[in-house]
């Protein structure tokens, strides 16, 4: 009960904070955190819970961004364009995502990486230029609106993952992750569940892409397809705690703050640090930062007995 109250008050705080603290800087940070948290959770559902480590999630992120941008700049209002972007991602999942499950295990990982590169190069060649924001859309552009949209999508995502983690579906996904053969043996249609996981994952990625397209004023068309958008969510999810509800959120906060800290440096120092933390996490903290709380609790318990 206490935690529910805590969460509710936190959500309320996040809703009213930007109205009280009129800081564009804060808004920008919060939007980024929501964006990364959402995208990381998108990866998390497929990679953390279902165990299918995708190295090419940018493909779906980019598809959502591309669709949203096209529609929005074309006059469609953003609250229609956003779900359209998510839908586009889902359709793309049908085209290339589900067939990619033909590749098992590590082959899936490098296969998704290849697919992401194909998407990137294709977009770079088909749409080499910059996407400029039109006059009409500029009028619509409000950081506050974007924030509420991003926050809304973020909360919905976290809620969805929470519901997933408590559901039979979530259990099935985890069983696929733990031992695919064993899961098949007890009658779980692993392909079906992988498809479900990917569907949810790509829809969320599509939403995240739309938010990106809404938020970024001007960018190269191929920007959302870049490798970084495939790698960052993976790093964030792992460091925060893959396969958990809170993990990607914690990871996103740390990531964005680090980015801010080293904003002026050459070569993205934050990625360097993140890379090191990532390796440390894989080796020593399989449950990520979120798991530290668990370790501390365990030590506490054993110290007392």
């Amino acid at each position: 009960m206490k935690s529910k109250l805590g969460i509710a008050s936190f959500v309320l705080l996040m809703i009213f904070a930007p109205l009280l603290i009129k800081s564009e800087y804060l808004l920008n940070l919060l939007i980024l955190i929501c964006l990364y948290a959402t995208l990381s959770h998108s990866w998390n559902i497929l990679g953390g819970y279902c165990g299918q480590i995708s190295l090419g999630h940018a493909t779906f992120f980019g598809a959502g961004a591309l669709t949203f941008r096209y529609l929005w700049l074309g006059g469609v209002s953003y609250y229609l364009a956003l779900p359209a972007g998510a839908l586009a991602s889902l359709i793309l999942a049908f085209a290339i995502g589900f067939p990619s499950f033909k590749m098992k295990g590590h082959y899936f990982s490098i296969g998704t990486l290849a697919l992401a590169m194909i998407a990137l190069i294709t977009v770079q060649n088909l749409l080499p230029g910059v996407s400029f924001i039109t006059e009409a859309c500029l009028k619509e552009y409000s950081l506050l609106t974007i924030y509420y949209l991003a926050f809304g999508v973020g909360v919905a995502t976290v809620a969805a993952v929470y519901a997933l983690s408590r559901s039979k579906l979530g259990l099935a996904l985890v069983s696929v992750r733990e031992d695919e053969e064993a899961a098949e043996a007890i009658g779980i249609n692993t392909f079906k569940y992988k498809v479900v996981a990917m569907s949810i994952s790509t829809v969320i990625a599509g939403f995240a892409g739309g938010i990106f397209a809404f938020y970024c004023g001007t960018y190269y068309h191929y920007a959302p397809f870049e490798l970084g958008w495939s790698f960052d969510p993976l790093l964030i999810a792992f460091i925060g705690g893959a396969g958990t509800v809170v993990g990607p959120v914690v990871g996103a906060v740390v990531f964005v703050l680090l980015k801010e800290l080293f904003a002026a440096s050459l070569g993205q120092v934050n990625v360097l640090i993140f890379g090191i933390v990532f390796i440390v996490t894989v080796l020593f903290l399989p449950k990520g930062l979120v798991g530290i709380a668990g370790i501390v609790r365990k030590k506490d318990r054993s110290a007392r007995t």
Partner: peptide, 11 residues
């Protein structure tokens, strides 16, 4: 090994 080497790649 995939993940760790991935980290090394980024670093």
């Amino acid at each position: 090994s995939l993940l760790i080497s991935f980290g090394i790649l980024l670093i």
